[in-house]
Write a protein that binds this DNA or RNA. Sequence first.
DNA 1: ACCTGAACACCGTTCAAGT
DNA 2: ACCTGAACACCGTTCAAGT
Lengths: 230, 230
Amino acid sequence: MAPRTDVAARSALTRRRVLQAAVDLADREGLPALTMRRLAQDLDVEAMSLYHHVANKEAVLDGVVEVVVGEIVTAVAGVGPDPAEDWRAALRARILTARQVLLRHPWAPAVIETRTAMNAEIVGYFDGLLGILRAGGFSYDLAHHGMHALGSRALGFTRELFAPTDPEAGGAEATAMLEQLAGVYPHLAGMLADTVHQDDGVLGWCDDQAEFEFALDLLLDGLDRRLRAG
Amino acid sequence: MAPRTDVAARSALTRRRVLQAAVDLADREGLPALTMRRLAQDLDVEAMSLYHHVANKEAVLDGVVEVVVGEIVTAVAGVGPDPAEDWRAALRARILTARQVLLRHPWAPAVIETRTAMNAEIVGYFDGLLGILRAGGFSYDLAHHGMHALGSRALGFTRELFAPTDPEAGGAEATAMLEQLAGVYPHLAGMLADTVHQDDGVLGWCDDQAEFEFALDLLLDGLDRRLRAG
DNA sequence: ACCTGAACACCGTTCAAGT
DNA sequence: ACCTGAACACCGTTCAAGT
């Protein structure tokens, strides 16, 4: 009898609960931990039970993207000024808000980039961005180019080619290493010598938020010029 | 005796041969086919033999990136004008050349983005780009921002959030679908109605090369303006 | 030094069986 | 209708054994 109560206590499995558990698991332990068996374990259920609510693992990955982008869509609702007044500020505010959501799900960009099928939430998000540009006076053609130019940055992320700077890591070692390699990488070594703030002993020169905003503003400036050029 | 000759005929396994076989395999059959067992099979060897030349699968992935970026570094050598004369054209030529190389290895961007360790070839490539900006008069600080802004585009790729347009696919169906969804995605539907060249019946509006160049030029324009602004 | 075969600890997924 | 256990066809990798 006791076990029966437990079973009743853990409310019925649904697609929604499976996907939310998947997002929580990835948040907590990273993407490699997101396996069907591990996910089932978190839900106090056998792995095979999941298949009654999702078709397969691909569907789980589609689903977690849906959940995360859904969070973004909720977060950006009502953010920023009226796009008819200032499309640039409206677009900028939305994108920076999206970025804040994705910072809570650092594994999500990697998953989003593996999705090939159209995702309703993503399409909806982009439809909203397109609406901002249209309200700002963009032709469909220029707006289309603009969306491509923003690319994944429109959702608030950039996949950096070098590992993010760890503020805890001793920058002194990295500095020493790169200075050793000044013969091989002269320009990088020079940049490092020029811009590292050695006073606090860390590589204080890669502020991800600042770099994201710099690149975003570069693109928004460019689009603004193209818009004015007619 | 005959088998002995065969063994001698297939030249000794080396790290280089393993990595080249891995690149060829991914080119031919895609990334999922690149498993240690399958790779060994292509080399007429047992899977475990590979571990005498590479530490593990991560090392294979590091290695294939090394090979592909090595191809890029070779391809861009001497391409474009003297950067001291025209940094913009020099940078543009290199990046478009890099893109041509990556088009031959469509699986490579996905692997590159999973690498966390610094890769000597990638660092070398970026050192070269940095040299172009320096020759063009950029401060280290602005050049650094510029590299971040270009991001993976500097290596010639952009990860598109929607599947690439298949020119063979019937655009009519997709059009019909999106027009059905005009109520849900009004701006996308409007864009589609406006820009699709329905005369040839395909979605002729996503020219990847043209979109890549549009975005690249937007960024180069922006950097040029920042440079002139001092 | 280099290669091998068997084995281990995982995967995603199928299927027939339970309730 | 929903959940389960055993099983299958894969993975990457360890290890002791071959040559």
